[in-house]
Amino acid sequence: MHTPMAPNGSADILAIANAPVLWLCVAGVFGVIVVQSLIFLRAVRRAAPSVQMTPGDIRTSFRSGAVSAIGPSLAVALVAIALLALFGAPAVLSRIGLIGSAAYDVSAAGIAAGTLGAKLGDESYTQSVFAVAFFAMSIGGAMWMIATLILTPLLRRGDAKVRAINPAAMAVVPAAALIGAFACLGFTELPKSGTHVVTFAVSAAVMALSLLLAKTLGKSWLREWGLGMSIVAALGAALLASGS
């Protein structure tokens, strides 16, 4: 449809992906989350005595939340590191620091690059393509926040229209949309090369094995680390298969 853009065709993504302004935005994103947490903690401290919640209970809750987040946070960090070469540290930090996930962000970037006739990671992945992909994943992430901003007050009021959504539709439609999207995005990778097929297959197999073992052995850390382990194993397989 579109020919890859001629001007600024440099494929040196990391040169612009590490722009100081982007680092500043990352700091802003982190700052907003910190400020929100402080405001919410203060609100809890004020309301706690009225529901028989002691300062000790608040400390225990904070510590429980922090400790239980260590495993998942490290697992997310591993996935984020794998994306650094593609998006650079500021984009990865602000996308995964704020609402986002590897699954969504990589998919959105791939779709956005596709609309420019480019593919992530190869010579068609220029600075301009990166900028459009970063824009698309960010505004897509913003849509979750906009939906939350609009829906939360409605749901609080117990809005009849929102509650009246057919439960059968709520069960089928999201599952269909997600599996359909990821199946299509995944299959699109297959015709690109044999190495793509190997990479995709190893990733899928490692995840299937992790989920199976997590279930049979009752080890939930396998579920948390599944994505990270799958990506590392698949990239290792890609390295071997591509012979570089």
Partner: peptide, 22 residues
């Protein structure tokens, strides 16, 4: 290699995860 193949490396696992969790 990471740059070129990270997309299929993410999507294979994500597809399986979506299928199993749904």
């Amino acid at each position: 290699v990471t740059r070129l193949y990270v997309l299929p490396a993410v999507l294979g696992a994500v597809l399986v995860q979506a299928i199993v969790s749904m």
